[in-house]
Design a protein around this nucleic acid. Sequence first.
DNA 1: AAATTTAACTTGTATTTACAAGTAAAAAAT
DNA 2: ATTTTTTACTTGTAAATACAAGTTAAATTT
Lengths: 237, 237
Amino acid sequence: MVGKTIPQHRKLYEILRKHILDGVYKEGDLLPSENELCRLYGMTRPTVRQSLSTLANDGYIRKHQGKGSIVHNLPREIGILSISGTTSAVGDRNLKTRIIKKPVLMQWPVNFMFSLTDLEKESGCIYMERLRLLEDVPIFYDISYIANINLARITARQFENRSLFQILRDNYHIEIKGGDQRIKAITANSKINRFLKLKKDQPVLHLERRLETNNPALFLYSSIFCNTDKYSIFGRF
Amino acid sequence: MVGKTIPQHRKLYEILRKHILDGVYKEGDLLPSENELCRLYGMTRPTVRQSLSTLANDGYIRKHQGKGSIVHNLPREIGILSISGTTSAVGDRNLKTRIIKKPVLMQWPVNFMFSLTDLEKESGCIYMERLRLLEDVPIFYDISYIANINLARITARQFENRSLFQILRDNYHIEIKGGDQRIKAITANSKINRFLKLKKDQPVLHLERRLETNNPALFLYSSIFCNTDKYSIFGRF
DNA sequence: AAATTTAACTTGTATTTACAAGTAAAAAAT
DNA sequence: ATTTTTTACTTGTAAATACAAGTTAAATTT
């Protein structure tokens, strides 16, 4: 029932993306030509072109008419601007998660940062707070809100060092489709200051994000406080 | 010589985009189906699909298999995250530009924020500083750097209340193709403080951007300080 | 009346074919 | 030797076709 066939263009996308990330194709390299990829992977050109188009959109390559597709695998730093989750952005390697408040079911806050649908308001809100550490240095303080729509037993699950996205995907078949966010520079309150181990009056990046999922009624909200002293937030467009 | 034919899929993209921005299709509306667009504009489905795919990538619509393409024209606030220039992002209406330092040709700063090619280093750098005001409130302090490559007489041009991108497009046929940026929350120095009329110790958003153009050797660099007290930086992904 | 099935839509995937346009290097002419 | 032209690549655009898969509402059955 869950077993869906993965389209060919997606397969090739994943293969090429992995090769780029693994360094098989390096920054500035030309990818094999479209016709060559057709031969190599037994696909037709429109299919290959769809893979390359997605790669270009995601910033992994840049296409040049008459020349080819050039790898553009910049160091991504903390790329949470264009990529869905903190985990996939940084790369799971050195990012640890510490749960500050375990997920609980509660009412939505008054004057919530985004406007909510009636269904969301009725369903109530699953709330949690997590601290994300990069090489044992606290970088993100992450407050998450999800409407309690078809998420049975979620408050009982194990969140430690596991991505929220991963849990939603594995247990509830929920995928992130896109979203939008607002960014501000603020002075943190004492609680954020304590958790992020900030110096006095150190400015903090504040992100308010609304993520859309494959369930049109279900959104993920998060309020993220980010220490940008050592690391930058990085994005491509 | 400059007159290039615009592809059909691009034409349809522009038409639909304009209709969305003008409110012909409103937030939540279904666009005409792909087959209907084929009939309406005399194109085949792959061509129509290319237009819709670009619209979806740019965040104007969201596609749903079996349902259709749904308009997704959120208010974009100050969307300089995903859109190329400050002007196009905010909408030219209320954004004024005040020149602080007129463009001059100079050497690149030592320890420049991005790594430069040898050609860029040799060419020297066109430097300028501008203040951007939204409804007469200073919002952005914008420091721009461009390599002096085929930009004859640029230091003599009129920049007041004209987008840098517009000048480059109109006079030099340079288009922005993409780019990347880093974002930090910082405490501004006294100069930035003065121009942005900040309160004491008010945090400021700092963006360092590198924009790529249709000339593979030419990049636009800018260091932008942004007062996010009243407005947020906005982005879609 | 309610539940189920069917039919008529929608977008998604994929192939095949053809030519246009840009790039770069080899070949030819100067 | 240098310049120009040709050639052989590359990606871009576009059409015609076919079927898969998701959605919705009408038709049918229960």
